[in-house]
Amino acid sequence: MATERADALKKTMRGLLRGRFARAGLFCFEEIGSTNAFLKEQANAEPGEAVAFALSQTAGVGRRGHTFSTRPGEALHLSFLLRNLPERGAPASLSVGLAVQQALFALCGEGFSLKWPNDPLAGGRKVGGILCEAVPGGIVCGIGINLLLSARFFAEQNLPNAVSVQMVTGSAPAPEVLAAAIAEKLELVLAADAHTVLASYAAHCATLGAQVRVFGADGRVVLEGVAESITPQGELMVRTADGRVAVRAGEVSVRGQNGYV
């Protein structure tokens, strides 16, 4: 029965995908540990690009390594195995983030933005996450979007600054519809020149102009200042009391109405 449901899901996704990703390998699951982990394992066996989609995950990885599980339909679980990215293109993590923001805007309307480098925000609060990991000959980009999860769920998970699409807009698209919309936007973003992508990204980045804190791997604040711009390499330029610093990696918290997010 589980195989039949997965086959039906794959047929639905095949009907929704267009262009570049309609030609990619497609893997669909009713339940999986992690779509990213699956595609990382498939990277050596899959010569081209691939898409993995699941209705639920049991071993998703979120902020600071936080693991979580969801029930079918509560969230989007989607990963892309990308190949042959342009050498002078915009950084993949920013490109995927922009594609997600554009897809959410197209389906759900205003109120969606990005926190550097690629955290999707809804109403200024975290509505999902993106994890990009290098593999031989390419990169795997995993996308998780909270669709129907409740405020109670986030309270139980000790995630006070997280929301779902439904909490913000009153409704949410079906996971497979959002997955197809992201794939469509991602193809367009990957085909655009780096300057165009970075300009569009900056226009939708809630981090710019805000007071930010940058955390190191040990969870300690390593610098604090105002986020000013995005460099051509995708770095976050922060003006601190000691001058301007280009942030290449690290977790960034943005000060908003609800404190730092």
Results as ranks from 00 to 15, higher is better:
1 M>F: 15
4 E>F: 12
4 E>K: 07
6 A>N: 05
8 A>Q: 04
9 L>T: 03
9 L>D: 07
16 L>E: 15
24 A>H: 05
25 G>I: 11
26 L>H: 09
29 F>V: 05
30 E>Y: 01
32 I>V: 09
34 S>C: 02
34 S>N: 06
36 N>L: 09
42 Q>G: 10
44 N>Y: 15
45 A>L: 15
46 E>A: 09
47 P>Q: 02
47 P>Y: 01
48 G>Y: 03
53 F>E: 05
56 S>F: 12
56 S>E: 11
57 Q>M: 06
57 Q>Y: 04
64 R>S: 08
70 T>I: 08
71 R>I: 10
77 H>D: 13
90 A>R: 01
92 A>P: 07
104 L>S: 00
108 C>Q: 11
111 G>F: 07
112 F>H: 00
113 S>Q: 11
115 K>D: 12
126 K>I: 02
139 I>S: 12
145 I>P: 08
147 L>S: 06
152 R>S: 11
165 V>C: 02
168 V>S: 04
170 G>E: 05
173 P>S: 05
178 L>A: 02
180 A>V: 03
183 A>M: 07
185 K>A: 14
192 A>Q: 10
193 D>L: 01
206 A>R: 13
215 F>S: 09
218 D>F: 06
220 R>E: 15
229 S>G: 10
232 P>M: 00
238 V>Q: 11
238 V>D: 13
252 V>L: 13
254 V>W: 02
254 V>I: 09
254 V>R: 12
